[in-house]
Amino acid sequence: MTRADLHTLTGAYAVHALSGRELGEFERHLAVCDACRQEVRELRETAARLAVASSLAPPPTMKDDVLRRIATVRQEPPRLAARETRESHAGPRRRTGRRAVNVALAACVAAAAVCGGAAVWQYRQASDARDTARRSEQRAARAEELTQVLAAPDAHSRSGRMTGGSTGTVVVSRGLDKAVFLASGLPEPPAGRIYQLWFSDGGTMRPAGLLDSSGRSTAAVMSGAVGKASAMGVTVEPAGGSRAPTGDPLVLLAFPSA
């Protein structure tokens, strides 16, 4: 894929429509292309606004309109057996009146159900749109933070092979007091397990966040300040993470010196 081709993928990336090798190539391109990063941010903001705008509250007159129109709909007469027809002659007015009341009550219940159902649907749509917008904003914020570290003037990196043949790279900015970990070819962890990042403070491992991976390239800003850490590691831990490593690290990378 050429550099010109990569510039055309901002829209698909903004709505999470890329996958596999194409996603990995574009994310590497995004780390070095200011124009594409700016376009992705703008597209995500627009998508978030459109999602919120699509959620509309039902008009205040909706319930009154439904109730008014019900009165104009002709009800089909019930089909009665011959015996029921003869018995009905005993009190036609009373039975007709009672039937009309029942029909009216049923209409009111149906109208309430329609209005209530519409309100619930609209509420769910609005809630889903807000959740989507919030997730998009969070992803955009994480991408911005990752880009800041990678583009920092004092950013230095170190790479190493991980257990299983994958590659890991750590990028450290002492000025920002932050570090980013990038992995290529990291397989999905076993069921009920997750990758966890660690800072090494003179040999003492400090939790630095969790890492999602499904076999493709992935990147994450390590949680917490770099501080006096001199290295970082990756382990496989129970879902939810651990306070201390429960096994040997897949990789242990010493932080590059300035």
Rank of each mutant, 00 (worst) to 15 (best):
R134E: 15
R74G: 06
R69I: 04
A106H: 05
T85N: 15
G116H: 11
R99H: 01
T132Y: 14
Y123T: 08
A104V: 11
P59Q: 06
K63I: 04
A118H: 02
L105K: 08
T132N: 03
D65P: 01
E84R: 05
R79P: 04
P58A: 08
E42Q: 09
D65K: 08
A118P: 02
G116T: 01
I70N: 15
A48Q: 02
E87F: 07
A107R: 14
A71Q: 14
V52R: 15
V120D: 13
T46K: 14
Q125W: 06
E87C: 06
R83Y: 04
A129Y: 03
V40C: 00
A104P: 01
L80H: 04
A106G: 15
A104M: 07
H89W: 07
R41M: 08
V120E: 11
A82V: 09
N102K: 11
R68D: 14
A57W: 01
Q38E: 15
A81P: 06
N102C: 12
V114H: 06
A129I: 04
R86D: 13
G97N: 04
A119E: 11
G91T: 03
R93H: 09
C115K: 02
P58R: 06
A106C: 12
T85F: 06
N102D: 12
A47K: 03
E84K: 05
A110Q: 06
E87Q: 14
S54F: 00
A107N: 14
A126Q: 00
D64I: 00
D65A: 13
A118C: 13
R69W: 04
E39Q: 12
A47H: 09
R41G: 03
Q38N: 10
A48K: 00
A82S: 13
A133S: 12
P92L: 10
R41C: 02
A106S: 14
A82N: 09
S55C: 13
R79S: 11
L50S: 06
